[in-house]
């Protein structure tokens, strides 16, 4: 697998480490409900198909990336910086 790092170009997957679903970027507020926190920390959609996820270019530029990848085919659909174009 190769990931096109927006800063470094296409690199082999061994340069990257994987965190998990991109929902981890949306940390609830401290006063959010228990359900919201349980949801954030533990529950996952785990789709068979396109999946938004967070990767770290740990052996490269250290950027955290938001990758849209198909979990059935491993095809990488998009890669952006983790917080790019988000409101």
């Amino acid at each position: 697998m190769r990931i096109e790092c927006p800063q470094c170009g296409a690199r082999d997957v061994r340069e990257f480490t994987y965190l998990g679903a991109a929902v981890l970027a949306d940390r609830p507020d401290a006063d959010a409900t228990t359900e919201a926190w349980q949801d954030y920390v533990h529950l996952r959609d785990n789709p068979a198909g396109p999946h938004d996820e967070l990767w770290h270019h740990a052996m490269g530029c250290s950027a955290w990336l938001r990758v849209r990848r198909n979990t059935l085919t491993h095809e990488i659909l998009t890669v952006t910086m983790a917080q790019e174009d988000r409101t």
């Binding site: 480490t17 965190l19 981890l24 970027a25 940390r27 967070l54 770290h56 740990a58 250290s62 950027a63 955290w64 910086m81 983790a82 917080q83």
Partner: peptide
């Protein structure tokens, strides 16, 4: 270190 990167880039950009 990786977790700090995560916090700084993703949680508190």
């Amino acid at each position: 270190m990786a977790y700090m990167d995560f916090c700084a880039q993703v949680l508190k950009p």
